[in-house]
Simulated assay, not measured.
Amino acid sequence: MHGLPPREPSMSRLVAEFSVPDTELTREAYAFAAGLEPVAMLNHSVRSYLFGRAAGEGSGLRPGADYDDELLFLAAVLHDVGLTGRGDGHQRFEVDGADLAAGFLRERGLSEERVEIVWTSIALHTSAGIADRMRPEIALISTGTGIDVAGREAGRLPGGLADRVHEALPRLADGGGVLEVIIEQAVRDPAKAPLGSLAFELARQSAPGTPVPDWRALVAGAWAGVA
């Protein structure tokens, strides 16, 4: 029926069509994210999992054998909760989201070791060149989000997968609907956009008048007068 808002696919459909990890915790995490995020953002999160997993398989990484597939899904589905009202604090959105996700998982009894993997996966998911040198769960979240938002390394996906994924999880908004939220947060609260972060660069490019620190001046002025 025309005019109805888009709805997220059910977890049961994702399990049936894409064999996502089906545990009590993955279902709870999906429901938690769905209650916080618009459908475009939620779809982006699940696509990031599917693309990251597929890229890993193309490199010989086997889910459940070479890495913890449940943790990969948890990190992916929760990786943008820092862009929601519930997760919007005064840190960069990746860290706000990692903190919210970690608290959610601790409340449900996940071990601290596994919580730490999810936290790091979310906190570093925009840190290309760092995340990809770390354990597979962390690397594949960064890869999956990069594929989905910017098409980076999309050639690692098997033929036909992207079409299947987009049919089930349509884009609905460019970049998964996250770029505008990142920019809005950064402009409203510069503490959320430290120099060199993705949020800082998006705000610099997209919001005229965003102050840009002069790094050379900062360095030259540091410790001025100290012998």
Rank of each mutant, 00 (worst) to 15 (best):
R108V: 07
A207C: 13
A65E: 15
A131Q: 06
E112G: 13
T26H: 00
D80W: 07
R47H: 02
Q185N: 02
A75P: 06
R204T: 14
H2G: 08
M41W: 00
S121F: 07
E17I: 11
D132F: 10
L100P: 05
A154W: 02
G144F: 00
A40M: 04
A54V: 02
L198I: 01
A150G: 13
D68P: 06
A65M: 09
G82M: 12
S45T: 08
G89V: 15
G129M: 12
G52E: 01
L14Q: 03
L198M: 04
M11S: 07
G155R: 02
E201Y: 09
A207I: 15
M11T: 00
V15G: 02
G175F: 01
R164Y: 03
M41L: 10
A162E: 01
V212W: 08
A222M: 06
I117H: 07
I183Y: 00
L161W: 00
H79W: 07
R152C: 06
G3P: 07
E37S: 04
H79S: 10
V118L: 09
G209M: 12
G159K: 06
D68Y: 06
L195E: 04
P21N: 10
G89A: 15
S12G: 12
G85M: 13
T26K: 04
G176S: 03
S12N: 12
A31S: 11
T26S: 04
E116F: 06
H90R: 14
G129H: 07
A162Q: 07
E180F: 01
E28K: 05
A191E: 15
F200R: 10
S142I: 00
L50N: 01
S45G: 05
R152K: 11
G144Y: 00
T120Q: 15
A29K: 04
G146Q: 02
G3Y: 12
D69W: 08
E94V: 13
E167N: 11
V178G: 03
A31C: 04
W215C: 11
L100V: 10
G196H: 04
G160E: 09
R133D: 08
L25I: 09
A162P: 00
A16N: 07
L74M: 12
L74D: 14
S12M: 10
L36E: 08
D22C: 04
A191C: 09
G155C: 02
D214F: 14
F32T: 03
P190Y: 08
A203E: 13
L169M: 04
A33E: 01
E137Y: 14
V212K: 04
R171W: 05
G155L: 02
D68E: 15
D132L: 05
Y67F: 15
L169H: 02
E37H: 02
G196A: 09
A150P: 07
Y49P: 14
M41D: 10
V149F: 11
L61W: 02
M1Q: 12
T210Y: 13
E28Q: 11
E184N: 10
E113Y: 07
G97M: 13
S121E: 12
A217E: 14
V20E: 01
R86K: 14
R13H: 11
G155K: 03
G58M: 03
D148Y: 05
L179N: 06
M11F: 12
H125Y: 00
P63T: 05
V115Q: 06
A65P: 11
G225L: 10
V20I: 11
